[in-house]
Design a protein around this nucleic acid. Structure first.
Length: 191
DNA sequence: TGCCTGATGTTCT
DNA sequence: GAACATCAGGCAC
């Protein structure tokens, strides 16, 4: 049963919502299997931000980012990788939170298979890695995160376990401190 | 452990 | 034509 109110916490500025997503669980159903993983690293992006895909306004590619909160924005990059974001804020704002790393909880064997035999440590400790492990690609672009086969479940508040730093793998707005991760978690991409 | 690079395709200049 | 919210494998130390 879907309840919009479950994703109400996504209504806010990207940099405010990004730390709140830490600890939430992604539940993915695929090939008759259930995969679960806990979000341990996120990055905020919004339209005022030179590093954001939405910076130059809405395009075909970034359309979902400008839509209502609670949907998944998936993009293809470097010719071979997918990365996924949770759209946040109000419709028309162009803000989203990149999921940079997750901790595998359930269906780990299946994730290893999808990751072509990579070790547990390397399964989901990067934005493109977790998409591969959870079978996320462009067919899920725009997907609402209260619907099957991909649901965002609330998690415990990480509170003082949250570390805030600048973002990774970007060339513009490098100094903006909009990356958040869970302290001492071994699945975070970079400590 | 850490640097370097090839893979591979869409978007923007 | 260049840049790109990346990854894995190779080789030097």
């Amino acid at each position: 049963m879907s309840h919009k109110s479950a994703l109400k916490f996504l209504n806010g500025k990207a940099f405010q919502v990004a730390p709140k997503l830490l600890g939430c669980v992604i539940q993915r159903h695929i090939d008759g299997k259930t995969l679960k993983a806990r979000i341990v690293e996120t990055e905020a992006y919004d339209q005022t931000d030179a590093a954001s895909h939405s910076y130059k306004g809405e395009t075909t590619r970034t359309q979902v980012m400008f839509g209502p909160a609670g949907h998944l924005y998936v993009y293809f990059t470097y010719g071979m990788h997918y990365c996924c974001n949770v759209v946040v804020g109000n419709e028309g704002e162009g803000s989203a939170v990149l999921i940079r790393a997750v901790e595998p909880l359930e269906g780990i064997d299946e994730m290893i298979k999808k990751r072509r035999g990579q070790s547990i440590k390397n399964l989901t400790n990067g934005p493109a890695k977790l998409c591969q492990a959870l079978g996320i690609n462009m067919t899920l672009n725009g997907h609402y995160l209260q619907d099957e086969p991909l649901v965002l479940l609330p998690g415990e508040n990480m509170g003082d376990k949250i570390i805030q730093t600048s973002r990774i793998g970007i060339s513009r707005a490098k100094d903006v401190p909009w990356r958040f991760y869970i302290k001492d978690n071994s699945f975070v991409s970079v400590k």
